[in-house]
Design a binder for these strands. Structure first.
Lengths: 232, 232
DNA sequence: TGACTTAAGTGAACAACTGTTGGTTATCGG
DNA sequence: CCGATAACCAACAGTTGTTCACTTAAGTCA
């Protein structure tokens, strides 16, 4: 299963190319974090084994294990944030923006379930997780709140800032709960994910499900939940 | 911090009272599971230390560490199930039943945050978690689905069984997301929990918030999120 | 070509942990 | 005093993160 097993004694990198190993270490750590049943038990020696290098060699590139993990988490966090922003960019309306953002969030969460739980599962020691202010997702939450407020403005009576905040918070909790349970309880008979996303957003925006569905970007997740972890 | 520290060399239990230690072990394991930052790293020796007993002594009462943990988890699961049933018992209407059930779930989840994540956080090896069929919460989910269906029957057009299932699932994911994030991200400025429960149920049942709030049993959770873990 | 420098990566050891076992002791009840 | 119960002691083989002195080899320059 391990991609290295016993290929070769690993030829050493040429002179100026010490950074190559660093990249390999990051890749290996990311793969293991995503793959392991218990990501928080990731081991320095596991990473070394995966790359085919001596445990001590890691210390030339990272001060300690925490730094390596932190590096990986930051990359993943930025990846998700970028994905959500890009999904929302071509949005023609506030509602379209919200739908695209949330869909991107959920899809990334179930597509990269291993990474999702290392970021949002509350499993990693808090000081390793990016999204500094309020723990993972501080900025993401802010974006969702703003997007939801924009999408529901003009609807019904205007809301206070507190109400907007609470509504955004509830939407995020709903999204997180959906992703978490979808990933962790694969044996439950789950309906198609896109239907859940549609209904969830319809519920939280008060718009008809059909309207939301029309705005949902293409791209149902390939397979059902817990169908094995996909690579990096 | 540890409740035992160094009180006494622990007098041995009298003749027929070997079960006393067993109970102490269960209590200690429960406390540690709830208290530890990483419950899944619970150690046989930690339990032994907590009780003030030699590691080997545990094997007289449990075949191995897994069995001890499994025992604790089953107890907690039964506690939650009982709590929800009892909360729903005096319900005068299907909606009251649903509200009481869900409120009990959320309140237990934030009151016993340590236990909640060992049960539903997907942290423990799956074979240790009770709620056999679909992982933790299979029965609980069934009750919620039924309760929601009863509460919303007669409303609007009748729903198919599939729609009822999906609606119940979405409600559960919302509850779970709320509890998880409330527990894990204590630094976020959370609104009062009862308000969130009210709005969440109002959203999922289509009933006015005021109607739901009137049915909400007394008993706001004492303090905010992450205000230290409370004991067993 | 051959010596020199230095980046890249090792090997072995460390102390501290872990679950588990087999044999042993202390103590209580009769 | 005897036997059974309750619990312990010491050791095991296996982990882990981290350090330090060391080797190997690639590139440079005479």
């Amino acid at each position: 299963m391990s991609s290295q097993e016993w290929s070769a004694p690993r030829r050493r990198n040429p002179r100026g190319q010490g950074q190559v190993l660093k990249a390999q270490l990051v890749d290996a750590a990311a793969k293991l974090l995503a793959t392991l049943d218990q990501p928080e038990t990731l081991t320095l020696r596991q990473v070394a084994r995966e790359v085919g290098v001596a445990p001590a060699s890691i210390y030339s590139h990272f001060p300690d294990l925490s730094a390596l993990i932190q590096h990986v988490l930051r990359l993943r966090y930025e990846e998700l944030a970028r994905l959500m922003d890009e999904a929302a960019r071509p949005a023609a309306s506030p509602l379209a923006d919200l739908v695209a953002r949330c869909a991107a969030y959920v899809r990334w969460g179930v597509d990269q379930r291993g990474h999702y739980r290392t970021l949002f599962g509350g499993r990693m020691p808090a000081d390793l997780v990016p999204g500094t202010a309020h723990g993972a997702g501080a900025e993401l939450l802010g974006a969702v709140v703003a997007s939801l407020a924009a999408a529901t403005t003009g609807e019904r009576e205007r809301r206070t800032a507190d109400q907007q905040w609470q509504a955004g918070l509830m939407l995020w909790t709903a999204l997180h709960g959906l992703v978490s349970l979808y990933n962790d309880h694969g044996t439950i008979p789950w309906p198609p994910l896109d239907g859940l996303i549609t209904d969830l957003l319809s519920l939280h925006t008060g718009r008809p499900a059909a309207e939301v569905e029309a705005l949902l970007p293409q791209g149902e997740v390939a397979s059902g939940p817990a169908a094995g972890l996909r690579g990096t």
